[in-house]
Write a protein that binds this DNA or RNA. Sequence first.
DNA 1: CACTTGACCTGTCCGC
DNA 2: TGCGGACAGGTCAAGT
Length: 289
Amino acid sequence: MPELPEVETVRIGLSSLLPGLQIKAVTHDWPKSFPNAPAEVAEFLIGARVSGVRRRAKVLIIDLDTDYSLVIHLKMTGQLVFRSTIAHFGAGHPNDSLIGNLPDKSTRVILTFFDGSKLFFNDQRKFGWMRLLPAAAVEQLDFFQKVGPEPLASDFTADDFIKRLRRRNKSGIKAVLLDQTVVAGIGNIYADESLWGAKIHPEVKVCDIPEALLKALYEALRSVLQLSIEKGGSTDRNYVNHEGKRGSYLTFARVFRREGRPCPRCGTTIIKMRVAGRGTHICPRCQRV
DNA sequence: CACTTGACCTGTCCGC
DNA sequence: TGCGGACAGGTCAAGT
């Protein structure tokens, strides 16, 4: 669920809060959430100061002044919530906050800083993880070696996009969009939204899609991702930002989670189907190619 | 090789 | 009300 716009929203939030903070303590209740703790934690995490927060694909990277980095993948239900003082560890406004007192039963890791603030890594389904790695080792991770380009990078062109799609010419377009080695950061929500935008059926093979439609898909994908970042991402069930607040993109979604409701373009009822093993939302009239 | 399926997990929702 | 099963869907590994 956290896809590129959700992780980017968290990055933006934490970038204004974490740099300069010094780590005092770490607790973790679920070994797989922090698999290489505690081996190197005492030496390279405790006492370290945060020097910056980055994102690559759906991965968040918290850089430390020990030349180590915390690499974090939220997978489906991960949350990173920052609370500045004990007084604020309680619930936020009920209208916009999905979580209350922290830690709660899905808290896996807590970073405590010397000023009393805390960063909570919550993960209901325990698929997410956090790893402490030498900064130089981060880009050597198998995932980063294979992951495709950032779709919002200024130098990522429609030609680049189409060339990469063409390498999977015989595969269905949705499966290709979800393949992180083709383009980074796209998940189920933005695959469905961008395919609707370009009027492409998710099961159509790449080789059967006209060039002009692939170019439209490039434009739709970039504008959907950009809009979602502006709206703070999508909150379907679990996603919250660094303040524990929901994102509002789904208010603007055209097809995702809108089965049974009219297509905003032609009024045809949106249907839900299964493509590439995922719940997939389409307008059966608009998306016929 | 490319695709599909299963595993990793928990919470929610639906039908009986 | 309780209970089993389907479903949610990011990524990797194993199977077809």
